[in-house]
Simulated assay, not measured.
Amino acid sequence: MLMKQMLACQQFIDQVHSRLCQVVSWFTLTMVFLTFLIVVLRYGFNLGWIAMQESVLYLHAMVFMLGAAHTLKANEHVRVDIFYRKMSKRKQALVDIFGTLLLLLPVNFLIFFLSLDYVIKAWSLMESSPEAGGLPLVFLLKSFILVFAVTMNLQGIAELIRNIFAFKSSTAASAEGQA
């Protein structure tokens, strides 16, 4: 029963991050369009707006912060795998379990808690851009630090569940192979 609940939890988290990835892909397309528009307006018509330039910066931050969890889900994150790639699936699952428990989850909890006061202060000030004509949404942008930490920890939990299942299934397969 617990295994079914764990699997359902992992699938739900994966599904949420897949949908979030679709939003991120639209942000990326919008960012490319805006960058093109900024260049054309600046060099073609000698026009420019700080708010438009900052919107590209905001979109870039959102793409990174919201897309990081999907990158983890897709196993496309940076990994120094000199030894990892030569390991059996069982050992890889074990390394991933310990990496998640000892590095991923604690670091993202730390990011969340160290950033909480920073974000709260930005909201209390309704912090806006220091640039004239900039976006008055810096407090929202800073909030994505917390969203990043939460989504990474959620995906870390999903990866932990996935690796526990991988470890158990490889252990069962090796036990059947020895029998």
Rank of each mutant, 00 (worst) to 15 (best):
Tyr43Ile: 03
Leu7Met: 11
Leu141Thr: 00
Val119Thr: 07
Arg162Gly: 07
Met52Pro: 00
Arg162Phe: 03
Leu125Lys: 13
Ile164Met: 07
Pro136Asn: 09
Glu176Ile: 15
Glu176Phe: 14
Leu160Ala: 02
Ala51Phe: 05
Val39Pro: 02
Ser170Ala: 15
Asp14Arg: 12
Val24Leu: 02
Phe12Gln: 13
Ser124His: 02
Ser169Phe: 02
Trp123Thr: 04
Gln10Asp: 11
Leu2Ile: 10
Ala61Trp: 04
Arg90Gln: 07
Phe12Asn: 13
Ala179His: 11
Leu2Gly: 12
Met31Glu: 11
Ala173Asn: 06
Leu37Ser: 13
Phe33Thr: 14
Ala68Gly: 06
Met3Gly: 13
His77Val: 14
Glu54Tyr: 07
Val23Trp: 03
Ala158Lys: 03
Leu102Cys: 07
Gly156Asn: 12
Ile157Gln: 08
Leu57Glu: 01
Pro106Ser: 04
Ala61Ser: 08
Leu135Val: 04
Val107Ser: 12
Ile13Asn: 01
Ser169Lys: 11
Trp123Cys: 05
Gly133Cys: 01
Met31Trp: 05
Leu47Gly: 01
Leu47Met: 12
Val119Met: 02
Ile120Leu: 12
Gly48Met: 09
Met126Ser: 02
Ala132Lys: 13
Trp26Met: 10
Leu140Glu: 00
Lys89Asn: 11
Gly133Pro: 15
Leu47Trp: 09
